[in-house]
Amino acid sequence: MDPKLTEVSQLFERFKAALVRNDFDTCANLLSQLKVLLTGFRSLPPLFEDTPNAIHELTLARDIYEHAVILSVKTEDQDAFERDFFQLKPYYTDASGRLPQSPQEYIILGLNLLRLLVQNRIAEFHTELELLSSTALENPCIKHAVELEQSFMEGAYNRVLSARQTAPHESFVYFMDLLAKTVRDEIGGCSEKAYDYLSISDARQMLLFSSDKELADYIKEDHPEWEIKDGCVFFQKAKETAPCKEIPSLQLINQTLSYARELERIV
């Protein structure tokens, strides 16, 4: 076997062992070494040269990047996740004809969808979704993310929160926790438009706080325009003031003049 390949495989074994031990510093260290070594292989994207060991190298590289993504979830580093995912993506799309499908693929794709949802990047979420085949959409990991997005768009936030229990893979839990924060902000935004007031206990329950103090802190921090009075939270202040009845005269004059000019040109 190619000595370079052996070196990478050995290093990768050590990386995997460290990942199991949750020794993240060693992992990060080994990973950067691995990534540097991978640049030496000419069969990997973007070159895709047909070397004798191509299949082996591609599989190994894909495996490494998959673990890198998992590592970034464990270290809760979203930027690293995005980077590693984009490095991994060509192995799923462009090399799909040459490699057997990875067992991790759907988990990783599902995680990515969840990440986009957490970051509220819905347009990209749907762009990614278009790339998936109908069999992929049936997979529990993908389906989970798709259903979450649906509940999220509908406003059925309870369903989003209860989905944490049905997470199809352990690494999903991290994003589900992040999603809870996004959901709280959404509920806050909806409540201030939908209710005139809420009792403090109801507000606490709805916004998923365990104590009144947390709620008060949250209001002070994120929504200073809400008012706490007589054991209730009033949203009145946040509502828009009545529309003014003034005639937009300047705009009207402008428009009428432009009509006149255009008509003159026609006649």
Partner: peptide
């Protein structure tokens, strides 16, 4: 309740909710 709340925020319906 939360679906209605979101619809109100997005301006799809013009209503208010009475939680009590």
């Amino acid at each position: 309740e939360s679906i209605v709340a979101k619809a109100i925020r997005d301006g799809a319906v013009d209503a208010t909710l009475d939680h009590e």
